[in-house]
């Protein structure tokens, strides 16, 4: 009997159940060094918030011994979405707004990989808004980091779906009039099982969130405030202690399984709180599909694929 999508044949052991030989070998293998992961020099403007997210991603790879063959990085289009080129690992630079369905296909087809998707606020909540909702509700096993700069960076300062009311851009000369989307509320409502907020100004916190997201089984969403120094300078000063703002952690007594409490946190105005707002366990689509496959295949034990098809054709004559 052949391998299935959800139970791949060796040599690729699944993340969930690593093959003991690989596990032993893995223990000896040195984690990748920063030098081994650095890719193209980022094309970002000096001072862009996205640099620190990339640096944290390198750190995560080193610290958590994520080898080249165990991860894949996917993005849509935008300044932030240039991510995959900036590291030496398998990656795909897809089209504007559609990184999540692409990452979904990857995640479902390859349970042995950890899939990371990166993108901007326009990519995630404007053109890709519907995909965000559906990826969250399907609870795909993957991590999605949105670098929210509340503006369209790559296309040079148009209003983004997260731009605050009154934000002056090239498409809102008199200030933005459309009510902004709240990514955290959006994620909670859509059924994401891990919803966290962080800011590029606090790399240690970004790393903490990325690690928690990596460990989470299911759709882990991180909104990372990431300043666009070119088109929206100072957007997040209120949350940056170095600029006189406050970086408040989620209160210790916050119950991350309490959806209403998470929703209230999400509704706070800037600077708000940082940390995990919401985290619950719900079966992933990956696991549910794997179970369907396993149950269905029980009935076809020992048959080659062509014999299964033959059985079907025998009923069609």
């Amino acid at each position: 009997m052949s391998a299935t999508l959800t139970e791949p044949a060796p040599p690729q052991a699944t993340v969930a159940a690593p093959d003991p030989t690989t596990a032993a070998a893995a223990a000896d293998r040195k984690p990748l060094t920063r030098k081994e992961i650095i890719g193209d020099h980022p094309t970002w403007c000096p001072g862009c918030g996205d640099f620190s997210v990339l640096a944290v991603y390198f750190k995560l790879i080193e610290k958590r011994k994520l080898w080249h063959e165990k991860i894949v990085t996917v993005a849509g289009i935008g300044c932030s979405s240039r991510f995959p080129y900036f590291l030496q690992a398998h990656g795909a630079h897809f089209i504007h707004g559609r990184a999540l369905p692409f990452a979904t296909g990857l995640s479902l087809a390859r349970p042995d990989l950890h899939v990371f998707a990166f993108g901007g606020d326009g990519d995630a909540f404007s053109i890709g808004g519907n995909h965000f909702t559906h990826t969250a509700r399907k609870n795909l096993n993957l991590t999605y980091v949105v670098m929210d700069n509340q503006v369209y960076g790559l296309t040079k300062k148009q209003t983004s779906p997260t731009s605050p009311l009154g934000f002056k851009s090239k498409t809102d000369l008199w200030g933005a009039v459309d009510y902004p989307i709240n990514p955290m509320k959006q994620a909670i409502m859509a059924g994401a099982t891990f919803v966290a907020r962080t800011s590029h100004t606090n790399p240690a916190h970004v790393l903490q969130m990325m690690e928690a997201a990596l460990d989470h089984e299911g759709f882990s969403f991180i909104e990372c405030l990431s300043e666009c120094v070119e088109f929206y300078q100072g957007a997040f000063d209120a949350s940056n202690p170095r600029k006189g703002g406050a970086f408040n952690l989620v209160p210790a007594e916050h119950d991350v399984t309490d959806e209403m409490a998470a929703y209230r946190l999400a509704g706070e105005p800037l600077p708000g709180h940082f940390g995990i707002f919401y985290q619950v366990k719900r079966p992933t689509k990956n696991a549910l599909e794997a179970k369907i496959i396993k149950d269905v295949r029980e009935k076809f034990k020992g048959l080659e694929d062509w014999q299964i098809l033959q059985k079907t054709f025998d009923r069609m004559n």
Partner: peptide
């Protein structure tokens, strides 16, 4: 997009 993701995979 999903099919391309799986194909790429």
């Amino acid at each position: 997009a999903m099919a391309l993701g799986a194909s790429y995979a």
